[in-house]
Amino acid sequence: MGYGLGVFLLALGLILAFAVQDMIDAVDLTMVGYILCLAGVLVIVLTAVQLNARRRTTTTATTTDAEGRQATTQRRTESDPPPPAI
């Protein structure tokens, strides 16, 4: 999955919803177009969320000293954004 699939589904859905006037028995092409549009938008949003989540990481380390005391440290890092597409 990726942006390409989302854009493809969105474009195909818009074509079916607004540009196709043919009728197929027991199939509403306008509704199929709207469903494909919704699926395309959903794929684009999920891809953006998934790629954004990969850039952030949290590392937790717990250390115990000789007397039994524990110390916990957390480190949050964000990687650099990917280079812009040309």
Rank of each mutant, 00 (worst) to 15 (best):
E78P: 00
T72S: 00
A61H: 11
I24N: 02
R76P: 07
A39G: 08
G68C: 03
T47C: 06
D25N: 09
E67T: 12
A53W: 05
P82C: 02
D80P: 01
T57K: 08
Q50Y: 07
S79I: 08
G33A: 05
V32I: 12
T59W: 05
F18P: 00
V32A: 07
V32W: 04
L42V: 08
G13S: 03
R56M: 11
P84Y: 10
R69W: 13
Q74N: 07
I44Y: 04
P83M: 15
R55E: 09
P83N: 14
L38S: 13
V41P: 00
V41Q: 05
G13E: 04
N52P: 00
V49N: 05
V45T: 04
R69E: 09
G2M: 06
V7Q: 02
T73P: 05
I35R: 14
V7M: 04
R75D: 15
G68P: 04
Q21P: 01
A53F: 05
L5R: 12
A53S: 11
Y34I: 07
T60G: 01
T57F: 06
V7G: 00
T58D: 07
V7L: 08
Q70V: 14
I24G: 01
Y34D: 02
R56W: 14
I35Q: 14
M1I: 14
I44M: 13
T59Y: 05
N52C: 03
L9K: 06
V7R: 01
R76H: 13
E67D: 14
Q74T: 12
G4M: 08
A85G: 06
A71W: 01
A48D: 03
N52D: 11
F18C: 02
Y3R: 07
L29P: 02
N52W: 15
P84K: 12
G2Y: 12
Q70K: 14
T60K: 11
G13M: 04
G4E: 12
F18D: 08
S79L: 09
A26Y: 15
G40E: 06
A17K: 02
L42A: 12
L36T: 03
P84F: 12
L16W: 10
R76A: 13
V20D: 06
A66E: 10
R55P: 00
I86E: 10
T59G: 00
V20M: 04
P83K: 14
F8I: 10
Y3C: 10
F8K: 03
P81V: 13
R54S: 14
T64A: 02
V45P: 00
T30D: 10
V43K: 02
F18E: 10
V43D: 07
